[in-house]
Computed example of a mutant assay.
Amino acid sequence: MRTDDIARHDAKPAPTKTVRLVVTDMDGTLLTPDKQVTHATLDAIAKLRAAGVPVCLVSSRAPQGIAMYFDALKIHTPYAGLNGAIICDAESNVLSSLVLSAGAVRDALDMFDVHDVDAWLFSGKDWVVHDDSTGYVPNEKRVIRTTPVVAKDFTPWEDKVGKVTGSSADYDLLERMEGEVGQMLEGQASVARSAPYYLDITPLEANKGHALRELGRLLNVPVNEIACLGDMRNDIPMLDIAGLAIAMGNATDEVASHAHVQTDTNEANGWAKAIETFVLPRVPVAGAK
């Protein structure tokens, strides 16, 4: 870690001694690189369920890309999509949603156009693209099992966008743009990469810290009794406020510096190991006061 990363980590308050809720990122965290759930993860979730600890999902994905995992995970809880811009109950009914200003949407789209970055819009449960056959769209269609709306003109959606995503195979470009777009939209939007190839722009109040607070409120669990797990910069807002913040082994040093502890990678059952090592020992024993 760099000196500033070490200082940030050392300045964090001690982790909670009590965990009553787990809030987790999905891609790069709960899921393997090929978007699967391992047996070890299912076993860890079963242990949490037996101990009375719910698991809630928070992701940059749209709602349908999150709820599609409910059956496999055997969970039925509220969740947050679009980095917290949309909060849904367990039946996928929208409880609350935030949108970007039309001006911020246009500015982001102009910036992506200048740098030849493929732009997507997320409006409610709609995913809107210019072309569904190029770039990362075919991959995303397969991953979230959703067909996007194809539109050459994004104007009809500009005033009801919960997230703008720029996708590119040029990871270095998106890393630079994360800072540039963040400066351009400072005070108007949250800007963070959710993957090396995705740069997400969401309403200023819409981040995973907001999502964690809302999920805790819905389940009547205070923030300081919530454990969270994440791997990317868009997870930092929840890592900063959770009672127990866990970074994946595949997280960068910067992201890890915002966590209390770090587990193994998502290729090596890091999520399940984190639950066994850090979370379950902090779960209150049934009947204990």
Rank of each mutant, 00 (worst) to 15 (best):
residue 129 V to F: 15
residue 12 K to L: 14
residue 283 V to M: 03
residue 156 P to Q: 09
residue 264 D to H: 15
residue 279 V to A: 02
residue 77 T to P: 02
residue 57 L to R: 11
residue 31 L to R: 06
residue 127 W to N: 05
residue 4 D to L: 10
residue 2 R to T: 14
residue 2 R to C: 04
residue 278 F to C: 06
residue 281 P to N: 09
residue 279 V to G: 08
residue 190 S to A: 14
residue 164 V to L: 06
residue 264 D to S: 15
residue 144 I to K: 01
residue 3 T to E: 14
residue 167 S to N: 03
residue 88 C to M: 07
residue 20 R to C: 01
residue 45 I to Q: 08
residue 182 G to S: 10
residue 229 L to H: 07
residue 178 E to C: 09
residue 269 N to C: 07
residue 52 G to T: 07
residue 145 R to V: 13
residue 272 A to F: 07
residue 88 C to I: 00
residue 162 G to H: 07
residue 10 D to N: 09
residue 72 A to N: 11
residue 14 A to Q: 12
residue 109 L to Q: 15
residue 43 D to M: 00
residue 186 E to L: 00
residue 146 T to W: 13
residue 173 L to F: 03
residue 203 P to Q: 09
residue 231 D to A: 11
residue 285 V to F: 01
residue 236 I to Y: 12
residue 256 A to F: 02
residue 102 A to Y: 03
residue 25 D to V: 12
residue 42 L to R: 15
residue 113 D to L: 14
residue 248 M to F: 08
residue 286 A to Q: 05
residue 180 E to P: 00
residue 107 D to V: 15
residue 187 G to F: 13
residue 121 L to K: 14
residue 280 L to F: 09
residue 44 A to S: 05
residue 13 P to R: 02
residue 111 M to D: 12
residue 153 D to N: 13
residue 171 Y to P: 02
residue 185 L to N: 08
residue 178 E to D: 10
residue 247 A to I: 04
residue 109 L to V: 15
residue 134 T to Y: 12
residue 143 V to I: 15
residue 116 D to G: 04
residue 12 K to Q: 07
residue 258 H to Y: 04
residue 12 K to V: 02
residue 220 N to Q: 09
residue 234 N to W: 10
residue 147 T to R: 14
residue 149 V to Q: 10
residue 251 A to R: 13
residue 182 G to E: 09
residue 73 L to V: 06
residue 275 I to P: 04
residue 187 G to V: 13
residue 214 E to W: 03
residue 34 D to S: 05
residue 95 L to T: 01
residue 64 Q to S: 11
residue 19 V to H: 03
residue 134 T to K: 08
residue 110 D to V: 15
residue 206 A to P: 11
residue 76 H to I: 00
residue 51 A to H: 02
residue 129 V to W: 15
residue 86 I to K: 09
residue 186 E to W: 00
residue 215 L to M: 06
residue 242 A to T: 11
residue 34 D to G: 00
residue 53 V to Y: 01
residue 272 A to K: 05
residue 152 K to P: 01
residue 49 R to H: 10
residue 81 G to T: 00
residue 38 T to R: 12
residue 277 T to E: 15
residue 256 A to R: 13
residue 185 L to D: 08
residue 199 L to N: 00
residue 160 K to S: 12
residue 189 A to C: 10
residue 8 R to E: 08
residue 221 V to R: 11
residue 141 K to P: 06
residue 111 M to L: 14
residue 239 L to Y: 10
residue 139 N to F: 14
residue 270 G to N: 04
residue 209 G to S: 00
residue 51 A to D: 01
residue 157 W to I: 12
residue 134 T to Q: 13
